[in-house]
Simulated assay, not measured.
Amino acid sequence: MGCILKGNSGLYSRMTVGAVLLAAGAGSRLGGRPKSLLELGGVPLIMRQLIALSGAGVDEVAVVLGHHADAVEAAVRTFPITLVRNPNPDDGQPSSVRIGLQALSPKLDAVMVALADQPLIDAQDVIDLIGAFKKRGDAAMVVPRVRGEDGETAPGNPVIFDAALRDEWLAGDANLACRKWRQSHPDRVRWFDTDNRRYRIDIDTPEDIERFAATTGHRLAWPASMALAATP
């Protein structure tokens, strides 16, 4: 089921939301293993993301694979999703975003870009972000902005934007997406200010894994098939 948006007429119309889930990284700082397959409570992080998106009513998801594509695909192929591969994942995240955007259907009202290595994002977090998007006014993109214990703020993920912006990106510079775009168009960005630090937690290094355990009390673990697969 999609999301419901109340229009100016007082009538309710359906807002269709698509998502690009990025899972193309090499995991070079984690011994060359796919961080999206790290498990929390025995469930791979990428599967947790798919469950969150589905539970929030996101209509369709394109998962972008690259490095470790076969292993990641094996973990998620039972989900009703579109799987696409970035043939050049080392070109950087914008190239994966572009491939994912191309894979989504054209008839969407909003598009979300999410990361496959965020352990704690759940359906309510996605629902809250969609709710902030509904209240965005004339902005084109909504980005969570998380307050830390020191009072400083920093942007988080996922982000959500108007589908017209997707079309704008696909028609233009391949590298102009998400972070670069919002830096160049601050007037078209609406910040979703929150204390919810789940939007800021992702896993890139062994230190991130240890920090996650220390701050949450939960331990991330590699599946047995990858437990000894690290490279120096």
Score class of each variant (00 low, 15 high):
T194R: 02
A114E: 05
P106L: 11
K107W: 12
L83W: 06
L170D: 09
P106S: 15
R77C: 09
F192I: 04
S95M: 13
V142G: 07
N175Y: 11
R179S: 13
R179Y: 15
A103Y: 02
D193Q: 07
A140I: 05
R197K: 14
R136E: 00
A171V: 04
G100S: 13
R197W: 09
A114R: 04
G100P: 12
P144T: 02
D109Y: 01
W191N: 12
P144E: 03
P106W: 10
A114V: 03
R200N: 12
L104T: 01
I160C: 01
P119T: 04
A139Q: 00
N157G: 11
S184D: 14
W181V: 01
L104I: 05
R98L: 06
F79V: 00
P106T: 11
D162W: 02
L129Q: 11
I203Y: 03
S184W: 10
P158G: 04
L101E: 03
C178K: 07
Y199L: 12
V84Q: 13
V142P: 08
D90F: 11
Q183V: 08
D90N: 14
I99K: 09
A116R: 05
G137V: 03
R166N: 11
R98M: 07
A163N: 08
R188H: 12
M112Q: 08
R179L: 15
A171G: 11
V143A: 06
R145D: 13
D202A: 12
D193V: 04
G148V: 00
V143E: 12
A110R: 01
L176Q: 10
I121E: 01
V84S: 12
K134L: 05
G137I: 02
V146T: 13
P106I: 04
L104F: 10
P89S: 10
T153R: 08
L165M: 05
P155W: 09
D125V: 02
D195A: 08
N86V: 11
Q102S: 12
A103R: 01
A116G: 15
E152G: 14
N196A: 14
D109L: 00
V189D: 05
D173I: 10
G172I: 06
I203P: 10
L176I: 08
D138E: 14
M141A: 07
I99S: 06
I127S: 12
F79E: 06
L120H: 10
R190F: 02
V76Y: 04
K135R: 15
D193G: 02
D117E: 06
L120N: 11
I99R: 05
N88D: 11
P80Q: 00
D202H: 14
V126I: 15
